[in-house]
Simulated assay, not measured.
Amino acid sequence: LHPDDPAHPHHISTDRRRIHLSDSQRGADVTAIGNLLLYLPHFLCSLFVMALVSLLFGGLGVIVFFAWLLSGALVFHRPTESAIARRLLKLRHPTPQERARLEPVWREVTARAGVEGRTYELWVEDSDHLNAVAAAGHIVGVTRFAMNQLPNGELAAVLAHELGHHVGGHTWSSLLGYWYALPGRIAWRVLRAVSSAVFRVSRLFSCFGMGIVVLVFGAIAFATVSTLYGLPLLILGVPYALAAVGRRAELRADQHAAALGFAPMLAAVLDKLHQAEQHQQAQAAAIAAYHGQPPPQESALSKLLASHPDHHTRLHHLQPYLQPKPQR
Rank of each mutant, 00 (worst) to 15 (best):
T224F: 13
A249V: 04
G209Q: 08
S202N: 02
S226T: 10
A197M: 10
A223T: 10
I220Y: 00
G177H: 02
P232A: 12
W172E: 07
Y180Q: 12
M210Y: 04
V225R: 10
G230Y: 02
L176G: 00
I220G: 09
F222M: 12
A219W: 08
L176S: 02
R189K: 11
R192A: 14
F222G: 08
S202T: 12
L251G: 08
W188M: 14
V167P: 04
V198Y: 03
G184P: 03
G169S: 08
W179L: 11
V201L: 15
T224V: 14
S195Q: 09
S226Q: 05
P183N: 08
F199N: 09
L251S: 08
A249T: 09
A249S: 15
G169Y: 07
I235F: 00
A249M: 13
R248T: 01
L204M: 07
A219S: 09
G218I: 09
A193T: 10
V201G: 05
A249P: 03
A253V: 09
Y180I: 13
V167D: 05
V238F: 01
P183Y: 01
G184W: 06
H170M: 03
S174L: 12
G168T: 04
Y180M: 14
P239R: 11
T227C: 11
A244D: 04
Y178T: 14
G209T: 10
D254L: 09
F222A: 14
Y178N: 12
P232H: 06
L234R: 08
R189S: 15
P239N: 07
L231C: 01
S206L: 09
L176A: 06
L251K: 03
F205I: 13
W172Y: 01
L176F: 06
L182I: 00
F217D: 06
A249F: 03
Y229L: 13
F217Y: 10
R185V: 09
A193D: 07
F199S: 14
L233P: 01
P239K: 12
V194S: 05
L251T: 02
R189A: 15
R252W: 02
F199V: 12
A193L: 13
S206Y: 02
F222I: 08
A197G: 15
L204W: 04
C207V: 11
A187W: 04
L242I: 05
T224M: 13
F217Q: 13
R192G: 15
V245H: 04
I212Y: 03
P232N: 09
L191G: 14
G169Q: 07
F205T: 10
R200I: 01
L191K: 08
V214K: 11
L242W: 00
V213S: 14
C207D: 07
G184S: 06
G237H: 03
L175I: 10
A249I: 05
F222W: 11
V198F: 08
C207G: 02
A223P: 00
G168V: 02
L191C: 11
